[in-house]
């Protein structure tokens, strides 16, 4: 592995390396719920204050009103055994904050795009974004109570994704369901990067 010089804390222990997974999707689709379900700590929120200049509005000269916007991202943490810490980042809902996505997506292991069958089109911008960027991603359909159930094939057809993008159903409130989604995403990311998932998917056996 090529990595920078490893740093050590006061007791000479090597600092862990952080990895991140991005949870994307339309507004109100359950990104924050999923982050909260799997996070070992209370999910936190990081905020970036933007001025119009930083969101790329063409000309603000003569504008009397001071326009600032706060972009919030929810994130959670899962401490892994060994030398890794996993962070889950929920992307900012509005698409005008693409530049924030770039920062979050950079160096991500992969992404989960959450979808809601009642508003399937809301996930298309996220799908397009990760496709364009080449970030490995899967689509997880959050099954809301009261929403009409569709077969997976119907949803896959409606999403019109490449055959290589896994699609699955999930419940963002359920830890077991979120675990399945995230594990599937990691396996998919391995495959996308030319690694053999079989080696890593085998349940932990003695001495490995």
């Amino acid at each position: 592995m090529v990595s920078g010089p490893s740093s050590r804390d006061m007791n000479g222990r090597k600092l862990p390396t952080a990895v991140k997974i991005v949870i994307a999707g339309g507004f109100g689709v359950g990104k924050t719920t999923m982050v909260g379900t799997v996070s070992e700590t209370q999910p936190l929120r990081t905020e970036e204050i933007l001025t119009d200049e930083s969101i790329g509005v063409d000309d603000i000269s003569g504008v009397e009103r001071k326009d600032t916007t706060t972009v919030a991202m929810d994130f959670g943490r899962i401490t892994m055994r060994d030398e890794y810490v996993l962070y889950l980042f929920g992307t900012p809902g509005q698409e005008r904050f693409w530049f924030m996505w770039d920062e979050v997506a950079l160096g991500a292991l992969g992404a989960v795009v959450l979808a809601d069958t009642r508003r399937l089109a809301d996930c298309f911008p996220s799908v397009d974004y990760f496709e364009r960027r080449g970030t490995p991603f899967i689509v997880a359909v959050n099954c809301f109570e009261g929403a009409r159930r569709y077969d997976l094939e119907e949803i896959e057809m409606a999403l019109n994704l490449g055959p290589k993008v896994p699609v699955m159903l999930c419940d963002a409130r359920s830890l077991e369901s979120c675990k399945k989604v995230l594990i599937k995403m990691v396996l998919h990311a391995m495959k996308s990067r030319g690694l053999s998932p079989e080696n890593a998917a085998a349940p932990q056996s003695s001495g490995v």
């Binding site: 990895v19 890794y84 594990i183 030319g194």
Partner: peptide, 22 residues
């Protein structure tokens, strides 16, 4: 400790650790 650059995400140990952790 800076994170692993995306280009270097080919270490199977990383994936294995994440899957086991999940």
């Amino acid at each position: 400790q800076e994170p692993e650059p995306e280009a270097d995400m080919h270490d199977i140990r990383l994936y294995k650790a994440v899957i086991d952790g999940l």
